[in-house]
Design a protein around this nucleic acid. Structure first.
Lengths: 339, 339
DNA sequence: GTGAAAGCGCTAACAT
DNA sequence: ATGTTAGCGCTTTCAC
């Protein structure tokens, strides 16, 4: 087993002091070109790597960013994670991730865990109930950027899609194509994202003088399994025969919805028109093509990491009012063909 | 800004020495119940959290695992990451991830970056050409478990699906249902996984006395974009009119394949039967249902992290010959209906 | 049962 | 231009 070389070893090998070595390696101080070159040479040859732990302890900077998402295995969050990683890496940061599964308890633990001085900054998917923990972070001078949601009333930078506007576009698309009896399927969990999506639905109906009917809105229990979710949706469709269109508030719901419609042998869009939040390959391929709201995943992730990095490099500028709601794109496909 | 409390603060607050505090907090030494309780109390009240940097520097243990995958945003790797995270967390480990995008240069950098004493162990998706870097890790006494592949000839623990066996099952399924003119679509990149899948194809044809025809095998360039990939596949299908079945060696290829077949207005399975490696929702829903090879994602991830953790906790046992090839499940759907 | 002190590898203020 | 040294927060040996 090869021992790892330290700054002291390099100093010894080059007949200089550890200060000189440190200065050279960090490009600080004024060191003669000769020693500079020698030290760089020897360091290179011996594969010197600074011990991040020591640097971290000394400087209080770990060069690690904490990423707290709902589920790293999910489509959307996976995509975010990818972009965030790439961008962070360009600036020498690594990413530690944690999934909360939308569980507040888990969220608390995770943040506590990360806050052990191991992490320089955070990108967090907010959860109702996590306000205090996140505020504790900012109080401790750790930059935080919220992603895919925010804390209403709190002054923390965040970036997410324009949820309300996206749904408004979706519902208007239905109406434009002649669908007026529109149902809305969402999840029974307190997330601003979902509240705002529902708001977009209500607003658009009102604006078009369509009466909002309570039973046209289905809120699936959060922790229901796939089989039962499909059953519930089937039931909902059967009990709301008058509907000619359904908006699914999340990607996962959209897929469950397609399953339900398939099992009921209903035809899209002749029996029911469909729009789902979040695009995916399935919606492109599945006949007749499912109209969807495509989130600007890249922009969301890029903005979030950019804001965080800017804060990490120079925390003089105040970013607390950087609040981005990025518009989405509606991809119209066969599932909203004119009636 | 609240200063973070250190062991020294707790010592001062409880009129004891930092040694005593450290002992209590780590359950070491023999400390009287009275002081023990007092210290625990004060530590709790002040929200004491050990500084992981300091612990790491002192003990050489970071409690962080490095996860190097092809793409954290992908379906399969995302799922692995989720399981690995959950399991690691149970034992107090956090995960730093890095994507290689199957790029050797990137892989090298990433491993180098992680090896700065920041990481206690690794789970790595191997790439041809990364052998030296990985060996350097093990030489440095850092446990490594390879996932979704391995280095032929090297004695490093790994866990992956039984690629050859999986394809054998797939091709046999075609044959059983009456399809004999079977094409194989793969990617032109040197990964053992893919080599072994192709091997399964060749083996099964031979075993069934079917002559392997070179032009029935399509190797897509690795870095081709989606549009062109579909074009190439369409072209391949048109130039191999005799084929009555195609096996797609990866999930992504399967999706491209469906797109190609759709654009060519070919019917599945009447014109062409289809099997794809890796299951997903699309394959379940897409008419007539796409037969697929379902990888045991959970088992793969679980085994990998278990092996790594066992090594991390007790590196006396030798795990270098822990080489797991876990069987897959074939999910037969309409795309392989009997001819 | 408890405390003093060394030292992990590094940075940076302060000499020289 | 280069070296000496303190100290980041913690673990652990050794002394009492």
């Amino acid at each position: 087993m090869k021992k790892t070389v330290s700054i002291k070893d390099i100093a010894k090998l080059t007949d200089s002091s550890i200060t000189t070595v440190s200065f050279v390696l960090n490009g600080k101080g004024r060191i003669s070109e000769a020693t500079r070159k020698k030290i760089l040479d020897v360091a290179e040859k011996n594969g010197y790597q600074a011990n991040r732990m020591a640097v971290g302890l000394r400087t209080g900077v770990s060069k690690v960013i904490g990423l707290v998402v709902e589920n790293i295995g999910g489509h959307f969050f996976g995509a975010l994670a990818k972009v965030i990683e790439e961008e962070a890496e360009k600036h020498g940061y690594r990413i530690i991730y944690c999934s909360t599964n939308n569980d507040i308890q888990k969220g608390r633990e995770v943040i506590k865990m990360l806050s052990q001085q191991l992490v320089d900054g955070y990108i967090i998917t907010p959860l109702k109930g996590l306000e205090d923990e996140v505020l504790a972070l900012t109080t401790n001078n750790k930059p935080v950027v919220l992603i895919d949601g925010y804390f209403p009333g709190l002054n923390i930078p965040h970036v997410l899609v324009d949820n309300t506007g996206s749904v408004v576009n979706g519902i208007n698309c239905f109406i434009k194509e002649g669908y007026k009896k529109i149902g809305f399927v969402t999840v029974d969990i307190e997330l601003v994202q979902l509240t705002e999506r529902l708001q977009g639905y209500s607003d658009t109906l009102k604006q078009n003088n369509i009466k909002e009917v309570k039973k046209n809105i289905l809120k699936l229990p959060f922790d229901i399994d796939k089989y039962n979710a499909v059953e519930v949706i089937k039931n909902y469709i059967l009990k709301n025969k008058n509907l000619d269109a359904i908006f699914f508030a999340t990607n996962y719901l959209g897929i469950l919805g397609l399953q339900a419609l398939k099992e009921l042998k209903l035809s899209i869009p002749d029996d029911i028109a469909v729009i789902s939040f979040d695009d995916n390959e399935l919606f492109d391929l599945y006949p007749p093509g499912i109209t969807s709201i495509k989130q600007p995943t890249y922009e969301i992730a890029k903005s979030a990491i950019d804001i965080l990095l800017s804060q990490l490099m120079d925390n003089k500028t105040d970013i607390s009012d950087l609040k981005l709601q990025i518009p989405s794109t509606i991809i119209e496909r066969g599932s909203t063909r004119a009636k």
